[in-house]
Each structure stands twice: as C-alpha cells, then as structure tokens.
C-alpha cells in the first residue's frame, strides 16, 4: 500500500512547468524531497495536498484521488509549509483549542508533552515567537492530530541545530508506527540523509532521480585511478563526471559495483581509492548531470582526454 502515488503529474505556469512527476511513497516510510529553490518542491507538495490542482496526471493520497478526494484524505494528513503562519494575534493555545474541536483523534496529552519538549508556552501570542518557535508550534499542531501522513515543506529551514534535532526526533518517533508516513522537502541534505528511507531529487520541474536511500548511497562512488599514457576509459553506464589531470583520473559514478571495479582494473587502470559520496555531493552531481545528458558529459570530456594523452 502506498501513502502517496503520483503519475505523470503536470502543472503549467507562465514561467515554470512541473513536468511528468512520478513519485511513490510506500506506507510506513519517510521520503526526503530534495531540490534547489524554485525546482517545484512546494508545487508538488501542494498538488499532493489538493491545494493546487494538477493540469494532467493522477495523484492518489492515502487511497483517495486528489484533488477530488481531498476532504477524506486531509482528515489524515498533517501539512506544514514554510509559508504557513498561525494567527499572529492569537495564542498557541487558541490554535490547539480550535484543532481539538475539529479532529476526533486529537491527542491532548501528546500536545502537552510536545509543548514542554518544544519549550513552548501555550499562553504566548504567535507574533511574539521566534522563527524556530513558530515552526515548532506549527509542527505541534500537526503532530497532535496524529495523522497517517505528514507532509512538511522545508520543516527545518532556518532552524538552529538544537531545534532541528528536536524536530527530527519527533519525526522519527512518528515512524515507530508502521502505518504512518512522512514526505518532507528540504535543501538540508544532512537532515534528508539522516532520516529518509527514500530520496527524490527534483530540478527545474522534473524528477531527476528517486530511489531508496541505501541504494542511492551504495551506488554512487568517486574513484581515483592512476593510468598510463595511452589509457582509454572503457564504456560504462552511470558515468556522471570524468576529470583527468596527467596520469590521474577521477570518476564520479552512479552505478558502482564490484564488476565495474574489475572492468576498470582489466582496462589497465590502477584503482587508488574508492570513496563514498555524501547525499549533498550526489545531489549536486545529479543536478549538474541532468542539465546536460550524461553521455554528452562523458563525450565532452573524452576528446580532451585523448588530447592529454597525445
């Protein structure tokens, strides 16, 4: 069962298009949604929430077609976005009272626990809160509803490390239940790398890559090779970047395997070092290679390699 399933979702704006977005979040898992500013993260999340209607494509959330089934779906979704504010002239408590009346599953005890864990005073007006406190207050109003699906748009942006830790902790506490899921966008790749089961990269309105995190981190490597004068790199798939200087070649690969390593050794290269990449490095390399197709990137550097060899 999938918590979220998007198929060929398209949305056109005058200066921005969301193109054929496919996205699947299995129930019980966390997906980190990563992309530069303006890549289409917020638009995608709003379409998933039924707040914006797609021009084409199918969106199913918690078994409900969106936007038609948005009421039924939203009973079980908690949404917090960076541009969402609580009522400034009202207290945190005002919001909690309001939501308690709406949601049958509202958990008062948990809300009280979160107030103390987030160090928030329910009698304080929202306009007097710091940025971090506002974000925590907004997240609190969602956590205490105990929704099946949490959709957070940039929940940790602009927060200090302590506040970030507290929030990630709470998100992971949600995941103790097997039927609850989280989709969150961020450009903090560290947070995404830490708690996500699945990772999706988006750039310029298109999904660049989407996979489970362990596969992501396992399949990307940077290899340092030492090669002879006339060395030619064998054909390989998933080659993202080739940098050559003198007798050294640094390869960035998306499809690393032991077989590939053997192939390189057989081609006459000495493998000096095999490095794992952080999610941030993978993200940047993915975005850069999506701007120009990987073959063009490899072909582009090939002549210069031969030039260096000649």
């Amino acid at each position: 069962m999938n918590a979220i399933h998007c198929e060929n979702v398209t949305k056109r704006y005058p200066h921005f298009d969301l193109k054929d977005v496919d996205l699947t979040l299995p129930e019980g898992s966390v997906m980190g949604f990563v992309g530069p500013n303006g890549a289409g993260k917020s638009t995608t999340l709003r379409i998933i929430m039924g707040l914006v209607h797609q021009d084409a494509g199918r969106v199913t959330v918690l078994g409900h077609d969106m936007p038609a089934g948005q009421v039924a779906a939203k009973w079980n979704i908690g949404f917090v976005s960076e541009d969402m504010r609580l009522y400034g002239h009202r207290t945190i408590g005002f919001h909690l009272d309001f939501l308690r009346r709406i949601y049958p599953g509202w958990d008062d005890g948990y809300a009280a626990e979160l107030l103390s864990r987030f160090e928030l005073n329910p009698d304080q007006k929202v306009k007097g809160l710091s940025h971090g406190q506002r974000v925590k207050a907004a997240l609190l109003t969602v956590f205490a509803r105990k929704p099946k699906l949490l959709v957070f748009d940039e929940p940790t942006t602009g927060l200090d490390p302590v506040a970030r830790k507290v929030i990630l902790e709470e998100m992971m506490r949600v995941m103790e239940a097997e039927d609850r899921s989280i989709l969150f966008s961020s450009h903090n790749t560290l947070d995404v790398e830490q708690i996500s089961d699945h990772i999706t990269f988006i750039n310029q309105g298109s999904i660049v890559a989407s996979d489970d995190k362990e596969t992501f981190l396992d399949s990307w490597r940077r290899l340092r090779l030492v090669v002879g004068d006339r060395y030619r790199l064998p054909d390989m798939s998933g080659l993202i970047e080739v940098q050559r200087s003198g007798h050294q070649i640094v390869l960035t690969l998306a499809g690393y395997s032991d077989a590939l390593q053997e192939k390189l050794t057989a081609s006459g290269a000495a493998i000096n070092e095999v490095q794992r990449l952080t999610l941030e490095e993978i993200f940047i390399a993915s975005v850069e290679s999506s701007r120009q197709p990987p073959h063009a990137a490899a072909a582009g550097s090939a002549p210069s390699m031969e030039g260096a060899a000649a």
């Binding site: 948005q70 939203k74 541009d83 969402m84 609580l86 009522y87 109003t141």
Partner: peptide
C-alpha cells in the same frame, strides 16, 4: 496576507467549504 490560508486549507475542507 498573513499567510494563515495554507493552515486553514490544510484542514479537511474544500474551497467551497
């Protein structure tokens, strides 16, 4: 203007509601 609308619209309601 105060960006309370996303908060309200994330509740189980439609634009008609």
């Amino acid at each position: 203007r105060e960006q309370n609308l996303p908060f309200i619209m994330s509740l189980p309601i439609t634009i008609a509601d």
